[in-house]
Simulated scan of single mutants.
Amino acid sequence: MVVRARDVMTERVVTIWADAPLARAQERMAESRFSALPVVDRRFSLVGVISLVDVLRHRDDPHAVVGDAMTEQVVSVLPTTNVSIVAHRMRVYGELRLVPVVDKGILVGVITRSDLLRHRHSGGRLRRTARRIGGVVPVAPLPEAMAPRGAGRIGGRPTSSLRVADVMTDGGLVAIPPELALDETAEVLLSYRFTAVPVVDDRDHLLGIVSEADLMHGSLDGGRRLRARTVSEVMTRDVEVVHPADPLTDAEDLLSRRGFRVVPVVDDEDVLVGVLSRSDLL
């Protein structure tokens, strides 16, 4: 049976108006833990998409509204679109994590990479295979340290005055072993609503990082990736990292200008000691 966009899309969509203050978009992303929001007009017609990286790039303008920062040329699909086409577009457009579903010009849902992974791995049971540095991670609830902080630690201070250690997440770190099966890795990402998770050895040395995009390639592409079974076969090994004493501006360059979603923080022996995400820069 052909799976359509309407079969996997999320219908209860968090949206925002184009004339809303940019700070409101930031608040809604922090509240909902989404990294992008569809932008609609008063008739619920899709007019754009705003992402967390858009917010970061325009946050120095106190008068900016969503329409100033959003992307207007949006890749959208119909409810009847084959879901394999949606997956293909997400692979082709690497930064794309959200595809709006539009019917007669009206936004009726969205599809994220998480929706695609959830559909493929539905019915699975999350096992205790993710590890917290220093111990096993409980399946629930979400570790407090991994929740988005919004404007918490930066607190309006200029990033030029801060170090990575000032804002990184360093408690309750979640990591996975390289031999973990891809199905179980997908369950970890879905359960904790992560976009990526570090891969470490049994002494917490960073080996790589695996993302939703890596799992999509591993699950949906042809060739070798389709036959991949474990994290080590699909993870990114050549990982950009920062150190606790590095200027925060170094990490900001990776996250907001070069498009990284998560940057691992390691010590001088490449032991994972923290992570930085875009939400940490708000």
Rank of each mutant, 00 (worst) to 15 (best):
Ala196Ser: 09
Arg261Cys: 06
Asp166Val: 04
Ser122Ile: 15
Val200Ser: 04
Asp270Thr: 15
Leu37Tyr: 10
Pro158Val: 12
Ser35Thr: 13
Gln73Val: 10
Glu144Asn: 07
Thr129Ala: 01
Val86Met: 15
Val275Phe: 08
Val210Asp: 02
Pro38Leu: 05
Val265Glu: 00
Val39Asn: 01
Asp270His: 14
Ala228Asn: 01
Met235Phe: 09
Met216Tyr: 04
Gly105Phe: 07
Gly109Ile: 04
Gly152Glu: 13
Ala25Cys: 06
Ser232Glu: 15
Val65Tyr: 05
Arg89Pro: 08
Ser219Gly: 06
Val197Phe: 00
Asp41His: 02
Arg91Asn: 14
Leu173Gly: 09
Ala87Gln: 11
Gln26Asn: 13
Gly208Arg: 13
Ala18Met: 06
Pro244Arg: 11
Asp280Thr: 06
Arg59Ile: 02
Val102Ala: 07
Leu255Met: 06
Ile106Tyr: 09
Glu31His: 06
Gly172Thr: 07
Pro38Val: 00
Met1Asp: 14
Arg91His: 09
Phe34Glu: 04
Val53Lys: 09
Val242Trp: 01
Val210Tyr: 04
Val75Arg: 14
Arg203Cys: 02
Val262Trp: 09
Gly171Trp: 08
Arg118Asp: 13
Ile85Met: 10
His121Lys: 10
Ser45Cys: 13
Leu207Met: 13
Val110Cys: 03
Arg131Glu: 01
Thr185Met: 12
Ser84Gln: 11
Ala147Glu: 11
Val75Glu: 15
Trp17Ala: 08
Asp268Lys: 10
Leu162Glu: 01
Pro158Cys: 07
Arg120Cys: 12
Ile209Pro: 05
Pro100Ala: 10
Glu212Gly: 02
Asp204Ala: 14
Arg261Gly: 03
Val66Asp: 04
Gln73Glu: 10
Val83Met: 11
Arg128Thr: 10
Ser232Val: 15
Leu220His: 14
Gly67Ala: 06
Thr236Trp: 03
Tyr192Ser: 01
Ala213Arg: 14
Thr71Gly: 04
Asp54Thr: 02
Arg4Lys: 15
Asp7Arg: 10
Asp268Leu: 11
Leu98Phe: 07
Arg59Phe: 01
Asp201Tyr: 05
Pro143Phe: 06
Glu240Phe: 15
Asp7Ala: 15
Arg6Tyr: 10
Thr129Gln: 01
Val55Met: 12
Asp268Ile: 06
Glu179Lys: 07
Arg261Trp: 07
Leu117His: 03
Thr169Gly: 09
Leu162Val: 05
Pro178Thr: 08
Met168Pro: 03
Pro244Gly: 12
Ser191Met: 00
Arg127Ser: 07
Val241Glu: 07
Val66Glu: 03
Ser114Glu: 12
Thr236Lys: 11
Glu11Ala: 14
Ile111Val: 12
Gly171Ser: 12
Met70Ile: 00
Ala151Pro: 06
Val234Phe: 04
Thr230Cys: 13
Gly48Glu: 00
Leu207His: 09
Val101Lys: 06
Met168Gln: 07
Pro138Asp: 05
Val39Gly: 01
Val83Ile: 14
Ile133Ala: 05
Leu226Tyr: 13
Leu78Pro: 05
Trp17Lys: 14
Pro143Leu: 08
Ile16Tyr: 02
Arg278Pro: 02
Tyr192Thr: 03
